[in-house]
């Protein structure tokens, strides 16, 4: 994009030089020296816009903007799903965590994980290395959060199990890492 811009700039400048040369030296043309400066400015502005619109605006419009917006919306939904898991666990702090709560937590994780994996193809189709790398990183973070909650030290499907507040403190970091990576990915997609 930048290369095209510089080439165009050089071409415009060179054409200007040639035109100046022709007007000055070729006898069939007579230059009117009493030019209306506003009219000349308007002409230049029109020419400038005529070049700018196809080069800059059209490129921006065709820049997968709608796909990017959709993907960002999907990431917002993912963040909400993660927040739902966190809020649900927090609501059970220092309380008995029933088998039903255990199943609900697994189901929420399944939904959040599948959400990310389902948009992965669309994310990689943006063909941006940074987006692909960050998507893989987000997959690792969400898996690490899942492991922290449901791993050997995590929740049990046992009606006598209590979800201790100290255990919930240990989940803050993996949860926050996942959320912050999702946010980072949104910014990267927006800039891509």
């Amino acid at each position: 994009m930048k290369k095209r811009y510089y080439v165009l700039l050089i071409m415009t400048f060179t054409t200007g030089l040639y035109l100046g040369f022709i007007f000055k030296n070729v006898p069939f043309f007579e230059l009117n020296t009493k030019i209306d400066i506003v009219a000349a400015g308007n002409l230049l502005l029109v020419l400038f816009l005529a070049l700018l619109i196809p080069l800059y605006v059209t490129d921006k419009l065709g820049d997968k903007r709608s796909e990017k917006n959709l993907l960002i919306e999907e990431l917002v939904i993912l963040c909400q799903k993660l927040e739902r898991i966190n809020n649900f666990l927090e609501s059970r702090a220092d309380q008995t965590f029933s088998a039903e709560d255990f199943i609900k937590t697994l189901s929420l994780f399944k939904s959040a994980r599948q959400h990310l994996w389902s948009i992965e193809t669309a994310l990689t189709q943006l063909e941006q290395t940074e987006v692909t790398n960050q998507t893989n990183e987000l997959k690792k973070k969400i898996t690490a959060y899942w492991e922290s909650v449901t791993g050997p030290k995590g929740i049990k499907k046992n009606d006598s199990y209590t979800l201790k507040r100290t255990f919930l403190f240990s989940l803050h970091l993996p949860y926050e890492h996942t959320q912050s990576h999702a946010r980072k990915l949104k910014f990267i997609i927006n800039k891509a």
């Binding site: 255990f102 199943i103 937590t105 697994l106 189901s107 929420l108 994780f109 399944k110 899942w146 492991e147 449901t150 791993g151 050997p152 995590g154 929740i155 499907k157």
Partner: peptide
């Protein structure tokens, strides 16, 4: 299933 715990898988 409703989902899996990583402890179940491991």
């Amino acid at each position: 299933t409703f989902g899996y715990a990583t402890s179940f898988i491991s």
